[in-house]
Computed example of a mutant assay.
Amino acid sequence: MAKSKASKVRTRIDALRAVIDKECAAPICRESGTCRHEGEKEAARHMLGRLLAKLKEAAGDEREERARVWAEIYERGYDANGSTYSKGAKYRTGQPMKERAAGIRADIKMARKAGQTPLVQEGAGLMSQTLETYRFDPIGEAPAQIKFRVRVGPGYGSIRIGIDNIPQGWGWIAEEVADHKGGKVTRWRRTQALKELEAELKSIAQAYNADHGSNLYTDLSMKAFHVFVECDDPETLARHAEYERKHQERRS
């Protein structure tokens, strides 16, 4: 079997180092005290230096080419195998999950603060304060009673954003549907405003996320973490409240 290029280069390097490191055993060199083969060793050193310099240059070119290819993949969002790649604007390699969650909380807080900033009237024209750049986003414009929770999920593999105190008329649409027995039940559907709020919260969290090669076809997930936005519909809230009431009665 023919040797590979890398194998041939390794053989040449080993051969040159053998010449350089070999102790001269020629009697005439020992008697004279001067090795007549030093020129051969010097030539081997020179050739080895040239060979290693070429290898270093080739390795540098390979690193640059690899970096260029991966930059294109991340910009495009996928590779030739259909695996997905992305990096959020605020993603930092090795950043602890607690810091990511803290950053998401700060971004939500800023959006809420910006949404409450009033327009400023000046002369005949209408201008806004600096924070007004955030205005008309779903987070800033959501009802003031809504509260947000951001926590790291079990196993530190996810971040969960909770939405509490959602006004029923603002966030939910009640639909009367037939159940499997033919009776009527209420199904709660999210309003467009609530859907947009959930999407915006997820977008904020994804800015801290990255995908290093997930593939749906093989169920491979290579994301830094998963993002979940959670909220309970009125029926679920009523069920939880009833459970808590009964729990308190048993304790008392």
Rank of each mutant, 00 (worst) to 15 (best):
M1N: 12
S4R: 14
A6S: 12
S7T: 04
V9K: 04
R10C: 04
A18M: 11
D21I: 04
K22G: 12
E23I: 13
P27M: 03
C29H: 06
E31W: 14
E31G: 07
R36T: 13
E40H: 11
K41F: 07
M47K: 10
G49A: 02
L55P: 02
K56C: 03
K56Y: 05
K56V: 05
A59D: 14
E62R: 04
R68K: 13
V69K: 15
G77V: 05
Y78W: 08
Y78A: 11
D79N: 12
A80M: 02
N81A: 07
S86W: 00
K87R: 15
G88E: 05
G88F: 10
G88A: 10
Y91A: 08
E99C: 02
R100K: 13
D107A: 14
I108D: 01
K109H: 04
A111I: 03
A111R: 01
A114Y: 00
A114E: 02
P118K: 14
Q121D: 05
E122W: 04
G125V: 11
T130C: 13
L131Y: 04
F136C: 08
P138L: 02
E141H: 01
Q145G: 00
R149G: 15
V150A: 10
G153S: 13
Y156Q: 15
I163Y: 01
I166D: 00
G171V: 08
W172G: 09
V177F: 03
D179S: 10
R187C: 06
L194P: 00
K195M: 03
E200G: 03
E200A: 14
E200Q: 15
L201S: 12
S203M: 07
I204F: 10
A205D: 10
Q206T: 14
Y208I: 01
N209T: 06
S214F: 11
K223F: 06
D233L: 05
T236I: 09
T236W: 08
L237C: 06
L237I: 14
L237N: 04
R239D: 09
A241Q: 12
A241W: 01
A241F: 06
E244I: 07
E244P: 00
K246H: 08
H247G: 09
E249P: 04
R250I: 10
